[in-house]
């Protein structure tokens, strides 16, 4: 397994006039043998990044390196980056047996020469690996449940002998009682095979369960990136904190939450339009520690924050808790490191 690195990756859709930038200068590394969780709301560009990583979308700028070599130069033969899709009902060809689907991904030629018999054995082994009976290779996807299909999709990705797997929202189309089995499988694969994985999800609880580090994406940019425990325990970017606060928790009723009107206004703000991203910090129209709530923070409106902060947080005022309107900077220093999770 090898490291996958995104360097200043930019992906644009459409033409110059009506197009928009879905992924904007993303730097991200998926280290060898680790699972990196990528979270963000719909429209944040996380699926676009996934499709760019497997070559389904052309890059507008930057490059993607696999083990230090640009990905685009490897054509033909094996595809070292594989993908598992969100909807298991759309990602398997209904006219192909699941065995054929898995076998199709296997490299055509391999050192030693793979004969047909070997392929069949390999398919059986892969199906077994993902928890399906190997004698089911000859059946069609229509006969499988959603959870089982997702296992086949994972087996298909493994068949290519990939260096990295991109998993795009692989649990969100499944019923709650089945999501756990797929998450368990992902963990097992990482533990047993050392699979590197970019695990994309909007569900922080699921990401927390499998990923060793978390990257948070907002409007085409990574706004925070760090080890899972640290990001969850000590989020630096206000958007990360907002996401964390929004994860439903049966032990907290909604009434317990803070109800300060201006902060609430920020929470109720509409998600920004990716076609017209805000100037400066892209999060400022929704930010509870930004110019909307606190006076004197015009820097957020005008200047794009760099990433030279803890967790590479792209924020001018990282680590600051949501506070009542106070003069700018009053609570800055005290809370920078100290604010731990409840």
């Amino acid at each position: 397994m090898t490291e996958l690195r995104f360097e200043d990756v930019t992906v644009r859709y459409g033409n110059r006039r009506s197009g928009f930038t879905a992924v904007d200068g993303v730097h991200l590394t998926v280290p060898a043998g680790e699972i990196v969780g990528l979270v963000g709301e719909s429209g944040s560009g996380k699926s676009t990044l996934a499709r760019a990583a497997v070559g389904l979308l052309p890059l507008h700028g930057g490059r993607i390196l696999l083990g230090g070599k640009p990905l685009r130069q490897r054509t033909g033969g094996t595809r070292p980056v594989q993908m598992v899709f969100q909807d298991p009902y759309a990602s398997l060809d209904p006219r192909m047996t699941i065995g054929a689907s898995v076998a199709e991904t296997m490299p055509r030629r391999r050192a030693g020469g793979t004969r047909r018999i070997d392929r069949r054995q390999e398919v059986s082994a892969l199906l077994e690996r993902v928890g399906l009976a190997p004698d089911r290779a000859a059946i069609y996807p229509a006969q499988l449940s959603g959870g089982q299909r997702q296992r086949v999709a994972i087996a298909r990705a493994l068949a290519a002998g990939p260096e990295v797997i991109v998993a795009d929202e692989i649990t969100s189309a499944l019923d709650v009682s089945v999501q756990g089995t797929v998450l368990n499988l992902v963990r097992d694969l990482q533990r047993d095979l050392g699979t590197s994985m970019l695990f994309i999800s909007h569900n922080l609880a699921a990401v927390r369960y499998v990923a060793s580090s978390i990257a948070v994406m907002y409007l085409g940019r990574i706004v925070e990136h760090g080890p899972t425990e640290q990001v969850l325990a000590d989020p630096q970017h206000p958007y990360t904190r907002d996401l964390l606060a929004a994860v439903p928790d049966a032990r907290h009723t909604l009434a317990d939450e803070e109800d300060e009107p201006t902060v609430r206004a920020a929470h109720d703000a509409e998600p920004a339009d990716p076609h017209h991203p805000p100037t400066g910090c892209r999060y400022h129209p929704r930010c509870p520690v930004g110019p909307l709530i606190l006076t004197g923070r015009d820097v957020c409106r005008t200047t794009d924050p760099g990433r030279q902060r803890p967790h590479h947080a792209a924020c001018h005022f990282p680590g600051e808790p949501v506070a009542l309107p106070t003069p700018a900077g009053a609570s800055l220093r005290t809370h920078e490191q100290g604010d731990t999770a409840p």
Partner: peptide
């Protein structure tokens, strides 16, 4: 609140 409401609507 005004910035909030105006920005997206003008775009629209």
């Amino acid at each position: 609140m005004t910035t909030l409401s105006q920005a997206p609507s003008r775009t629209l």
